[in-house]
Nucleic acid binder design. Structure first.
Lengths: 167, 167
DNA sequence: TAACAATGGTTGACGGCGCAAAATATTGAA
DNA sequence: TTCAATATTTTGCGCCGTCAACCATTGTTA
């Protein structure tokens, strides 16, 4: 029982803060997203598709970008397809592959959802900080991201949906 | 299908970064925690208990601090109890209430786990930044945390396990 | 004191996601 | 050609945590 003091450490509270902020934001965002019938993961997938020239991406690319498992992506896309926001198309050049393709209604839906979402982001996150604070935050996060999740860095740009870049 | 341009926004990438970092860190941490037989949530609960003078906290307090549901806390504590790291004790002053009490082996376990964990935190997070960068990051996060999750601010300090602070 | 709302905690049903094993397609080598 | 090794996606199973319904206790109001 005695007194314990190992457990208070600055580094620990630093991550703690990050985790708390993440959870807090997630909760704040969830409500409005739900009004659009979307979860955070679903929004992210739709976004990634929407950022692409042809509005399509291969399942494995989605998995790489989102740090969902491929199986996770399968299920999310299942739901989105059932909702009519995405369709699957088989890949001509490699018949193992599958494209997830954003439908027109999918594009409309994500556009509307994102508009609202950005309001929330501004309200609960970026809008709370001075430009300098935000810049510093972003810079620090980018440094951590680059070493903790290097695939994603490549992923964002290398996600050219057209001829399917070899990895 | 057409060309899409709605979807690129600085604010969006700012949250995206936060989410990516969180996921990345979570993944990095999970491996070593698993070697201690703990999940992130389990570690957090043990930590909160360990920080307390009597190594005990009420279920509802744990829920408030961790932003798990009360039912979530019930199940985590179930597991921890099954593992012998925590016991439940009924509360004399309010017989609805239940204390979660850290056992001696629980304290040992969390101490060992935290030591390793801090290494990871330093390696993948705090150690990557200059003191100034870390300070700026922490400050910005704290601002966001305070508005996004005000309960937690009170919670951390008001978590005096002794006579049970009224909320 | 009786009646009833409010609080603390647990339970059952359920959904989301990961892991590992399938199913299918591709590539390379003998 | 044929067979092994590899790559892409899906599926079976199980864990974890939420939601809503529930029981027990406490506080309040009359």
């Amino acid at each position: 029982m005695a007194t314990t003091r190992i457990i208070d450490d600055d580094r620990l509270t630093a991550v703690g803060l990050l985790v708390e902020v993440h959870r807090g934001l997630t909760n704040k965002f969830a409500a409005r997203l739900a009004r659009h019938g979307l979860s955070e993961n679903e929004l992210e997938i739709l976004l990634r598709l929407g950022r692409t020239p042809n509005c399509q991406l291969r399942m494995s690319d989605l998995a790489a970008q989102t740090s969902l498992t491929t199986s996770g992506v399968t299920r999310v896309v299942d739901r989105l397809e059932r909702a009519g926001l995405v369709t699957r198309a088989s890949c001509d050049t490699d018949r193992r592959g599958t494209w997830a393709v954003l439908t027109d209604t999918g594009l409309e839906r994500v556009t509307a959802a994102v508009a609202d979402h950005i309001d929330d982001v501004d309200r609960w996150y970026t809008g709370l900080l001075t430009p300098e604070q935000l810049a510093a935050l972003t810079e620090a996060l980018r440094i951590v991201r680059d070493t903790v999740r290097p695939e994603a860095v490549a992923g964002v740009d290398a996600a050219r949906a057209r001829p399917r870049a070899e990895v």
